[in-house]
Write a protein that binds this DNA or RNA. Structure first.
Lengths: 245, 245
DNA sequence: ACCTGAACACCGTTCAAGT
DNA sequence: ACCTGAACACCGTTCAAGT
């Protein structure tokens, strides 16, 4: 269970008498390169072979740092959640706890917009040691200043996390290959869907027709903010607090 | 693109002069068995080889029905969304559109509780032909009776779907092996986490301490209902409707 | 029209051996 | 303590061939 935590060196190579080279890694470099792979090409690109190549070594050496791919993903996720946590801790404290909650949720959502693969993995493990638990704590603290029962606080934070995850999963969907290739941009892609929807029978799909213009070219952040606002409004009402600060 | 849709037969075998047997499938049986595999052992158990074995044939024959594993998953998902859709259409119409929305969301959530793997896949493709789009339409129709703008309606349905997905993803997390094995039940599992949390420094983790008793032994459905209620309350306020019917 | 066996390229994981 | 090459079992997918 004991694993190295504090090697700061980047991947490097050491010469040996016989002229052969041996790669040398560190937990840091393994996770950094894993995240880079994830960022560049998504979850399916994170392969032990691809990672080993980036690190300039053999596949098997990665197993000295992690016991399985699952652990690799958990650690990589925890690694970036650490930076999100730092961003959240840097947020200025506001008078209204609900404003704090909103700012934190937005910070988290922004991180997932930058790294869509995060949506699928974060909150997978609320390990006792992990940054996820610390993040959960931070998200919960504002609710301590609201007039709620412990159960309501528990549910409130679950709800906020749920809104983030629910919107994030949407982002995490691999866009179709043509969008990744750059052959078609997101806007055109949405537009093509919208066009297909417009051709549906209006009597059978009244709602789809009602919102098709909104769907066409919509912004994911707007969508998230609206969903978050509904939850926060509900929460404010539950806490019996006025609308002002 | 044209694929068989209407073979009703179960998997069966036909004798041939030379005494060898040839398996015979149908789109129906392929999807039914795929869903059975998913239900019995989760997403990772759905393998072309496992599916072929269940169907009593070779791996390659599945490719006559679907072009890829992705298509298999999409079709399997659409298949069960069809049953959810039927459940939702069977729901009695209520006076209050928000009550309708709640009932629909709960029906959807219940389906995911029964089939945790659904959480990860549904709403992956809102194909023009698919049941997902029909489901989306149904979820949206109550909002047409609320005093909202088209954009607010679009966002409202996204929010409700988000709440479902957000809670569902939580359910979809593979429980640790020991829980699946039945060696440890869910309650004990939660309890162990709770115990670890109780040992954290209360000054550093005040929120975690506040809610640990609620977390310990909590019910996922309660959690979902609360999250949904916050969103619906926000929506009701937005629509300017009173609390009554 | 539909099914089959065998092959291919790729994956996570293990291990005995090296340094 | 840490890295390596080679092997293993398994996966999705293809294809030429059968019926």
């Amino acid at each position: 269970m004991a694993r190295p935590q504090s090697r700061t060196a980047e991947a490097r190579r050491s010469r040996h008498p016989d002229g052969r080279r041996r790669a040398s890694h560190s937990m840091e470099s393994v996770l950094t390169e894993a995240v880079a792979l994830l960022d560049e090409a998504g979850a399916q690109a994170l392969t032990f072979r691809a990672l080993a190549q980036r690190l300039g070594g053999g596949v098997a050496s990665i197993y000295w740092y992690v016991a399985s791919k699952e652990e690799l993903l958990d650690r990589a996720t925890d690694h970036v959640i650490g930076t999100v946590l730092a961003d959240i801790e840097r947020l200025p404290a506001l008078d209204d706890p609900i404003d704090d909650l909103r700012a934190m949720a937005l910070t988290l959502f922004d991180a997932i917009v930058d790294r869509p693969w995060l949506g699928a993995y974060f909150m997978r493990e609320t390990d006792v040691q992990g940054n996820s638990l610390r993040l959960y704590e931070k998200l919960g603290e504002p609710t301590l200043r609201l007039d709620l029962t412990a159960r309501q606080r528990f549910h409130a934070v679950s709800a906020v996390v749920g809104v983030v995850v629910g919107s994030a999963v949407d982002l995490g969907q691999e866009p179709p290959q043509e969008v990744l290739d750059g052959a078609v941009n997101r806007e055109d892609f949405l537009h093509r869907y919208a066009q297909a929807w417009r051709e549906l029978d209006p009597a059978e799909f009244p709602f789809v027709h009602e919102i098709v213009d909104e769907f066409d070219g919509h912004d994911d952040v707007d969508q998230f903010r609206s969903a978050l606002e509904l939850t926060l409004t509900g929460l404010r009402l539950q806490a019996g607090t006025g609308t002002g600060a």
